[in-house]
Design a binder for these strands. Structure first.
Lengths: 121, 121
DNA sequence: ATAACGTATAACCAAATGGTTGAACGAATC
DNA sequence: GATTCGTTCAACCATTTGGTTATACGTTAT
């Protein structure tokens, strides 16, 4: 049973772009360990609050994290579903590879007597 | 048995960056289906040869494809190992999530008689 | 040898990215 | 009410990215 994943090209662009910098991967890891506010997160990096805010926005647009309003805070937590879907996407690429290998094996395994009339026997 | 993957931050940067554009994901898919030269690949896109060459270079630096010299041609094929390693990396993120959930469950399952002296009974 | 082909690379340009500071605004606290 | 805190956003800047055209160079074919 193959899971169908629904991700548009634009979503994949945003996801992979969001993951393409170690700072954002680190933020994803931290918010995976536990929810925190934007300013709590910002204190963990040697970077302006605005810069951290921008990184969070990139992760948010990719739907890798979600934001929850709590008073004056915005609390951020990772969205493991999106990570799972991305992993599944890569698994599909690998499946294409395996399918190709399977086709090649099939061709090699075929007896050398194809249906055209110059069969050796 | 958890597979250990060895990818530096810079490698991950390059991999996710390479995957962050649908043109390059498409190139990866095509070279996964079958090896082809750079100019063969270039003919499949509405883009200059130089532009395709640059995209291939991005995929190559990420080690998502490998290049093989064949006469005057450079033949490109996908490197499914790198895709697998990236998938495994994402699986590790998910594992962190599950570990956190497990810890929470453990806490909730704990009987409400902690070692401090204000236990209700 | 010459021409054609495949590739690499340089120079250039517009747009996006990743950082900064500063201003504005609602929510919480004094 | 005034202040502080958390957030958002705009303006700015340097660098990177993704495209172009043009040039150079090795390989194959005529």
């Amino acid at each position: 049973m193959v899971e169908r994943i629904e991700l548009t090209d634009e979503q994949m662009d945003r996801i992979f772009h969001a993951l393409s910098q170690s700072t954002r991967r680190d933020m994803l890891r931290r918010t995976l360990e536990g929810e925190r506010s934007v300013s709590e997160l910002a204190r963990e990096y040697d970077m302006s609050f605005a810069a951290v805010h921008k990184h969070v926005s990139v992760l948010e647009r990719a739907e890798l994290v979600v934001k929850r309003v709590a008073g004056r805070e915005r609390r951020i937590r990772a969205n493991p579903d999106m990570i799972a879907r991305t992993r599944t996407l890569l698994a599909q690429y690998e499946a294409m590879w395996r399918a190709r290998i399977a086709r090649l094996d099939e061709l090699l395994a075929e007896e050398p007597n194809p249906s055209d009339s110059n069969a050796p026997a």
